[in-house]
Design a protein around this nucleic acid. Structure first.
Lengths: 334, 334
DNA sequence: GCCCGTTATCGAAGCGCTTCGATATGTCAC
DNA sequence: GTGACATATCGAAGCGCTTCGATAACGGGC
């Protein structure tokens, strides 16, 4: 294994000079830098990560803790993970993967052993047991999601409240007066994950603001439950012309249940969904939808972390504005 | 930050004794060990990962490179990742996440900088560009998937050939004589990823062995393509009573297309799928299926890697036998 | 009662890098 | 020409741990 002293000897400089060339922390003449870089390349030198971490107390590794509870949309988690890794690499960092299962001990372990410089935690609950730990840690962290008490923490997420509202406004703008939210399973609201409730709140507020008629219906994530709910809605609310679905697994079943009931989408009923774009595009018909901008959330989370690592001040809360992509499933009421 | 010398002082021993207590590499009297462990606990000591890696040339971190190409089933990838992390933790290792995008350079980077001790590579292609690198690296690796030339490499995967055959045997056992394989998109076969072709081969061989009538139909992963293919199959092969679907996104569409054509499942046509259990369970009707045992593959991959790290010899190829779970979608031919 | 082999512990070297003075050289104002 | 000040480079210390002898204490065999 080639080390810094080998490079130094090869380039005819001292090891510290090689180090400064690599870190840029002191000015090095163009000529020397060139010679050193050439030696590095020629010898195929790679600094030893452990040695570097020891000497500089920076590992250049971030921890990412991902959820694995059922009910969490797996593709979205994956998208987050990939975007975090990609963004981290842009900042010359790597990503250590932790599962929720490891819990607080896992976070403490990687932080206290200096394995990682900073942490990103996904799927934050309203009263998340990891919060006290994250507050006490001497390493910066960013939460994806908003707990009930976010004091001293840095959080980022899609603005779910606005997302709920934006869907209502879209339907209202198309002339719909009677709408409904087909929501997440009851336990998701009960669990206080926050985002489901925020969508419902945003929905309700916008409904009120626009003087619409609209209500919220939690729904189990099964095709049967979806069919049942759709049947009930159509029976109880004959004037219903707009539906917002916030429950990924049953997006397809809801559409089929509407069709089965003889309602055409969008001619009879307009449908808007909160789901990944890919799912919306492949639905029949393609769905007007609001997606979680996982790439942006992940990227921004890393940016925030880097800013904190550099000692910068960062906003405590970052709410990303929702974007509704209009597709075939929503149309003006006739 | 508390370090080993603090623990040593607190316990009234030398730092090396603390180290030996932790590593177990030399015998320590029960009394001393107890005292040291108590001090460790009391002071909340965590060895510095970088220092440890530097001194022992072992980082206790594995690299996992995940695919992000479209067409790769995201939930399965996630399941792999989680099982690898979980298994790694059992061996006191952590997992560094790399994306396919980083390619060979990424692997080289983490290996040469001693950031990781060993590597796991997913989604191996028949002629994977990473193979020469993995062969030349001085760190052990395990591939999930089988390339065309696996010399000097350690590979593990589901036995896709047997999986294709097992589905045929299941249908044959139920008395079906005319069957078809609704396969992956043409580009997946073209890409030489291997597993799609292996399923098709296993299917074809078993069809021949049982004297059945059966053929292979690649299919794009869209609902339209699925409908079209099903219509064509039913038109061209009136005696068709069994279908194997190896194309996750269109499992639902195929079922619905059959139903739309007036064929009941399983009364008129039996369907078997290769897909995750969760998908099979939620289909209507629940599908007899063969799943990729991602948990086992991930766990075994880590075990193999650990054995290699310990200098042990491991089998070059590990093929996990497929398991067909019988559900409602397949029945004896009438 | 002496030698030998264990068992338990210590001390010191060293892993490969960063970083902090210190030094040497050059530049410029006056 | 001289002091003041950048600029470029070096040398050495030290990051926290592991590991390799070395040493001390202790039994046991004869």
């Amino acid at each position: 294994m080639v080390k810094i002293t080998d490079v130094a000897r090869h380039a005819g400089v001292s090891p510290s000079t090689v180090s400064y060339v690599l870190s840029g922390k002191r000015s090095i003449s163009a000529e020397t830098r060139g010679r050193v870089l050439e030696s590095i390349h020629e010898l195929g030198y790679r600094p030893h990560a452990g040695a570097r971490a020891l000497a500089s107390s920076r590992s250049n590794v971030l921890a990412l803790m991902i959820p694995l509870r059922s009910g969490i949309a797996v593709p979205v988690v994956m998208q987050f993970a990939v975007s975090v890794v990609t963004a981290a690499r842009r900042h010359d960092h790597d990503v250590l993967l932790l599962t929720q299962e490891e819990g607080e001990d896992g976070l403490r372990r990687v932080a206290d052993s200096a394995l990682v410089d900073a942490l990103i935690v996904m799927d934050v609950q309203m009263k998340d047991p990891r919060l006290p730990l994250l507050r006490s840690l001497d390493r910066p962290s960013v939460l994806i999601g908003f707990p009930a008490d976010a004091d001293d923490l840095t959080c980022i997420d899609l603005d779910f409240h606005a997302a709920g509202a934006v869907c209502v406004e879209h339907l209202a703008g198309l002339g719909h007066r009677e709408i409904a939210l087909v929501g997440s399973p009851p336990e998701v609201y009960a669990r206080q994950t926050g985002y489901a409730q925020r969508v419902a709140d945003g929905f309700a507020e916008a409904v009120a603001a626009h003087g619409l008629d609209g209500d919220v219906h939690p729904c189990e994530a099964t095709a049967d439950a979806a069919r049942e709910l759709v049947a009930r809605l159509l029976a109880e609310r004959p004037g219903l012309t707009g539906v917002l679905v916030h429950n990924e697994p049953i997006v397809g079943p809801v559409l089929r249940a509407l069709r089965a009931a003889g309602r055409r989408v969008p001619q009879d009923v307009s449908v808007v969904a909160m789901c990944p774009d890919e799912m919306a595009e492949h639905a029949e018909p393609p769905l007007s939808s609001v997606a979680i901008p996982a790439d942006e959330v992940g990227g921004r989370a890393v940016d925030l972390l880097m800013a904190k690592l550099d000692g910068g001040a960062v906003p405590a809360a970052t709410l990303l504005p929702p974007t509704l992509t209009r597709r075939a499933s929503s149309a003006a009421v006739r």
